[in-house]
């Protein structure tokens, strides 16, 4: 990665803190989180449940408000960044509207943002091609497999051409073979679009295979225990997972996870 560039970081968190007030007392979801993400990076957040990886992603998307520290997205507050359509968000479930066809589902953000009909059709066509779903625009979600639905939801997040793609365990509910296939496609898509991707997962191979940067997190309080810059090349066939470099990175991630866990068990 070209880290020499003088452009500002896409995502920058400094001393980020988030405490939820619940009936059982305060929960320290994020503590002292420092992270810089540069343009074009593929960053994975990995850790056990409760480590704050999803919460951190939601903070970037302005779906949660941090209680301390600073967080900027494209140099703006997360709220401003959202209004400037800085990111597309992909949830764990595809969440397509069952009453809309795939094409109409992808149009949903475009309708809300006020794109013209011709522009909408043009963008639907191009993102369907991007996720390999040409010809499925007229189908209803129930007519598609789980993997295809998730691809459609990625297309929906890409439709308004935001620079950042935030993905919260998007392939968590899919079986391993489909997941491998989608991981490959996601890398190809990332290479074509040069977007900055934030990706939450709890699968070590998935994180190592996809990322240029792996952020290892641990729970109670949610914090970053390790940030690993991947030495793997940008070109990654699936069998890169059998190379010594891959196994070494995976090992370091596993060590990081174990260290985070040892504290409280």
């Amino acid at each position: 990665m070209n880290t020499e560039s003088t452009t500002q970081p896409v995502i920058e968190a400094r001393q980020l803190d988030l405490t939820f007030q619940t009936n059982d007392g305060p929960i320290h979801a994020l503590k002292d989180v420092n992270l810089t993400v540069d343009k074009g990076e593929f960053v994975s957040f990995i850790g056990p449940s409760g480590c704050g990886k999803t919460t951190f992603l939601r903070c970037i998307a302005a779906l949660e408000t941090p209680t301390g520290g600073t967080l900027t997205v494209n140099g703006m507050t997360p709220d401003e960044a959202r209004r400037n359509r800085a990111y597309g968000y992909v949830f764990q479930a595809a969440g397509l509207y069952p009453w809309r066809t795939i094409a109409k589902n992808i149009k949903l953000p475009l309708e809300i943002m006020g794109y013209s009909t011709t522009e909408q059709n043009e963008r639907v066509r191009s993102v369907l091609e991007l996720v390999d779903l040409e010809g499925f625009g007229g189908k209803f979600p129930w007519q598609l497999s789980g993997g295809m639905q998730q691809r459609a939801s990625i297309a929906r997040a890409l439709a308004f051409d935001a620079d950042i793609l935030l993905m919260d365990e998007p392939f968590g509910a899919l079986d391993e073979i489909v997941r491998d296939h989608l991981n490959e496609q996601l890398l190809a898509l990332w290479a074509r679009t040069e977007k900055t991707i934030g990706f939450v997962t709890h699968s070590i191979p998935e994180a190592v295979y996809l990322s240029t940067k792996i952020v290892v997190m641990s729970p109670r309080p949610g914090r970053i225990t390790d940030v690993i810059d991947s030495p793997l090349p940008k070109e990654r066939p699936l069998d890169i997972r059998d190379t010594p470099e891959f196994i070494e990175v995976a090992h370091r991630v596993r060590e990081g996870l174990r260290a985070g866990h040892a504290d409280d068990e």
Partner: peptide, 16 residues
């Protein structure tokens, strides 16, 4: 909640 969050990521209005 996920559906409502999705609309929030688009900054959709209440009537939308």
């Amino acid at each position: 909640a996920m559906q409502l969050d999705l609309l929030r990521t688009y900054s959709a209005s209440r009537s939308q």
